[in-house]
Design a protein around this nucleic acid. Structure first.
Lengths: 151, 151
DNA sequence: GTGCGTGCAAAATCTTTGCATACGC
DNA sequence: GCGTATGCAAAGATTTTGCACGCAC
């Protein structure tokens, strides 16, 4: 019988192709981590520890060491973005095709975070990059602001 | 005899005023840390450990614990910005008045970093903030790109 | 003098790594 | 079967914290 896998990363997926290109392997753990990010959607950022917890909740036990290794791999392959919002540690989020350049608006008092997109920002970043010969990959604007509740 | 202090943070400085406003104190350690950032200039980002080293080189011994505490304080007071460039740990840079909104262009291969400014980005961030009732403080655009040497 | 800030050292976190085993290719 | 990836546990790095003393106000 044919396998009934429904995950996103099967045969011919960008993940598989990218891995094989470098002699690497498509493992269940790598699929699970990337699928988790795809399930929670673009623009949500979680830490390595949170990835571990969420996989456990989904009955997928992946060691924390493997999660760290996988996160580094996926960032290197540009499937994920690594970012930092002042407190705590590193966070990761899906580098979605639908969401190539999105931005963060963070309230400096309560930490509330909103996401937005802006072609204007995209263009400005691209212009700046090209003016000194850089080739744009992506950009993220972090706006520090005060939200209505905290004003 | 009159004191011949030449540091930036003496009597009536923004640092002193900000501290006193909250019942906090202007200490030599806090002055040294902020002066270090002012000496190296805006747009240069260094880690807590680097702050420690540079102060030692300048014959100013400040404990690492105090540096961590002071960095958090200065970020909270908005004298410094905290940022992250994928590898390693947190970095800090001066939040200069001359340089209210400046941006980073980082080569994802060699790590080379360039700075730039853009009114276009400023306006876009401001618009986005105001559209949901946030009051803009400042914004930083991080552009991931590939520099000419690495292409 | 009062009480915040510092230094020290220990603790708590967070992240990486060595090694034997498991498994994708 | 070969060689990469995993899991575990220990090591390493980074950041925070408790406490006694010192100093800014």
């Amino acid at each position: 019988m044919a396998p009934s896998l429904t995950n996103f990363n099967h045969s011919g997926s960008p993940l598989e192709i990218g891995l094989h290109h470098d002699g690497r392997r498509l493992t269940p753990q790598r699929q699970k981590v990337l699928n988790l990010f795809r399930t929670i959607g673009a623009g949500i950022h979680i830490s390595a520890e949170e990835v571990h917890q969420k996989l456990l909740e989904a009955n997928s036990r992946v060691s924390l060491a493997t999660i760290y290794r996988t996160l580094r791999l996926l960032v290197e392959m540009e499937f994920l973005h690594e970012l930092e919002l002042s407190e705590g540690g590193h966070r990761f989020e899906l580098a979605s095709q639908d969401h190539p350049d999105h931005h963060h608006l963070v309230c400096i008092r309560c930490g509330r975070t909103e996401e937005f997109e802006s072609d204007q920002v995209l263009v400005a970043g691209k212009n700046a990059a090209e003016s000194i010969g850089f080739k744009l990959i992506e950009s993220t604007l972090n706006v520090r602001a005060v939200c209505p509740d905290c004003q």
